[in-house]
Simulated scan of single mutants.
Amino acid sequence: MPHISLCIPAYAMGGKGAGFLAQSFDILTTQTFADFEVVVSDQSDDEAVAEICAGFADRLSIRHIWNRDGKRQASANVNNAMRHASGEIVKILFQDDYLNGVDAMKTVAQSFEKGAKWQLCGSGVSRNGGAVERPMVPRLTPKLMFGKNTVSSPSVLAMRRADLVYFDEELIWLMDVDLYQRLWDQLGDPVISPDTLVVNRVHAGQVSASVSPELRRHELRYMRAKQAGGLSFAQWLEYWRQLLKAR
């Protein structure tokens, strides 16, 4: 059994998905920590992603899983990858993101050596797949659940498989912050690795670029309804602020 399962939800992404994945795989082949598997849950209607996985099979331990009949959104697709993970640690890495530096996987592994249940790492963004801008260290706040994302994308997240918490498949825009909040509530504070271990690629095909105001309003109200224990004053303020932004 591998120590870490790297879970990647994949789809055609307007013809760019396979290329993004190939760049990510190239970086994975250089990692100084090698005790990991790659689990790709593929919702593509073509063979491009599957061919990339086959092309790297001699250099990486890759399990390609077709998920064409599954719910077509990131939360459901990444959950499918997580359900097929066999490693002690489950690390998320979205298809258009990639690791930064040869020691990224080693740092993730070391974060769990003292019994941590979940981990967040620093991230940056790139517009060209090269230069990294806007480094960000994750920070948890009570306003997180309503879209004030001070953590970054799901690619900065890793969990012990024994403590695995899945994404809410009713959510698209708020799928990440909802999960961070539930992990925080259930497992306590994470280990935070401040180094920029993940790069989030900025491009026109990002899911976040296509989120409508209607979807934002729907998910904000859904999140409010989930909080059966009530909201703090700061959370109510953030809820109304985000609702006004979504008009």
Score class of each variant (00 low, 15 high):
161 R>T: 09
158 A>L: 11
181 Q>H: 14
179 L>V: 00
173 W>Q: 12
166 Y>D: 10
163 D>Q: 10
166 Y>C: 10
194 P>I: 02
161 R>D: 01
189 D>N: 14
194 P>F: 04
160 R>P: 00
144 L>Q: 11
152 S>K: 04
165 V>M: 07
144 L>Y: 02
146 F>Y: 14
133 E>A: 12
139 R>I: 01
141 T>W: 02
135 P>Y: 07
184 W>I: 08
190 P>T: 06
162 A>H: 06
158 A>V: 05
178 D>H: 13
134 R>E: 13
172 I>M: 13
140 L>E: 03
139 R>N: 03
190 P>I: 00
164 L>M: 14
188 G>N: 04
166 Y>S: 09
188 G>L: 02
149 N>K: 02
140 L>Q: 06
162 A>S: 15
160 R>N: 07
190 P>W: 06
166 Y>V: 07
167 F>M: 03
141 T>H: 12
163 D>V: 06
187 L>A: 13
138 P>H: 04
175 M>I: 03
162 A>F: 08
141 T>Y: 07
140 L>M: 11
188 G>I: 05
180 Y>D: 02
169 E>Y: 03
148 K>M: 14
153 S>P: 06
182 R>N: 03
148 K>H: 15
158 A>P: 06
173 W>E: 13
171 L>Q: 09
142 P>Q: 05
173 W>P: 10
134 R>V: 08
191 V>R: 06
129 G>I: 04
151 V>G: 06
195 D>K: 08
147 G>H: 12
139 R>A: 05
190 P>D: 01
153 S>A: 14
140 L>C: 01
187 L>Y: 10
159 M>W: 03
147 G>Y: 09
135 P>W: 07
129 G>M: 04
181 Q>T: 15
164 L>H: 09
139 R>H: 03
154 P>S: 13
129 G>A: 02
181 Q>G: 09
141 T>G: 11
157 L>K: 04
165 V>R: 13
135 P>V: 09
153 S>E: 06
166 Y>A: 07
173 W>C: 12
148 K>I: 12
191 V>L: 03
164 L>F: 10
180 Y>K: 08
140 L>R: 10
158 A>Q: 09
128 N>L: 02
132 V>A: 05
128 N>P: 04
136 M>H: 15
177 V>T: 13
132 V>R: 05
172 I>Y: 14
